[in-house]
């Protein structure tokens, strides 16, 4: 057993050497614990195979004006819509100040291809697939898409107009790789 004087050796300002060792040891163990928790938390993030997002090629030659198709990219639905002139005019007629998420139709389509509206078919509220892509489905009050889950209405440029969704339907990254071929991703 160490004597009292030995234990108290090196005391300055009331701090013993042993206090320092205790704090240092617990801190070091704490850093180690945090280092172990990181991979335990990170394993829940999307894994490499999920992240290895494939690009999807779509043939749009068969889509007539006024029609839309539903396809999928990264397991999420994608709407490809061939807008008619009236729908484009309707979208252009809306003042940006009326929009919750202000964007012009030109910002949402490619130059010279503004009749092709390509968006994710995922409602920005809670992720349901809106109606309006297939023939005869409810297109909502603004002639675009309507989400039946919680009643969000999108216009002909797939912009949010009414209901709980905060933003417009997302335009995924895509390019025209041919006259009638679109590559998403």
């Amino acid at each position: 057993m160490a004597s009292e004087s030995e234990l108290n050796a090196g005391i300055e300002d009331g701090v013993r050497r042993r206090d320092f060792i205790n704090i240092a040891a617990v801190s070091f163990a704490g850093v180690g614990a945090v280092a172990v928790v990181l991979p335990l938390v990170n394993q829940m993030n999307p894994s490499a195979d999920v992240l290895a997002l494939s690009t999807t090629e779509i043939d749009i030659s068969a889509i007539q004006p006024g029609q839309a198709i539903k396809t999928s990219w990264r397991k999420q639905p994608v709407f490809v819509r061939n807008l008619v002139a009236k729908e484009i005019a309707e979208a252009k007629a809306v003042p940006l100040s009326d929009l919750r998420d202000p964007q012009t139709i030109d910002e949402r389509t490619k130059p010279g291809k503004e009749n092709w509206l390509i968006t994710l078919g995922v409602c920005t509220h809670l992720g349901c697939v809106p109606l309006g892509a297939a023939e005869g489905e409810n297109k909502g009050d603004f002639g675009g898409y309507f989400c039946p889950c919680h009643g969000s209405h999108y216009d002909t440029a797939a912009r949010i107009r009414k209901g709980p969704a905060p933003t417009n339907l997302v335009v995924p990254p895509y390019e025209f790789t041919g006259d009638t071929v679109v590559t998403i991703g």
Partner: peptide, 12 residues
């Protein structure tokens, strides 16, 4: 995405 382990509910 952390909760789902992907972009949509899937195997993970």
């Amino acid at each position: 995405q952390w909760l789902l382990g992907g972009f949509v509910p899937d195997n993970a």
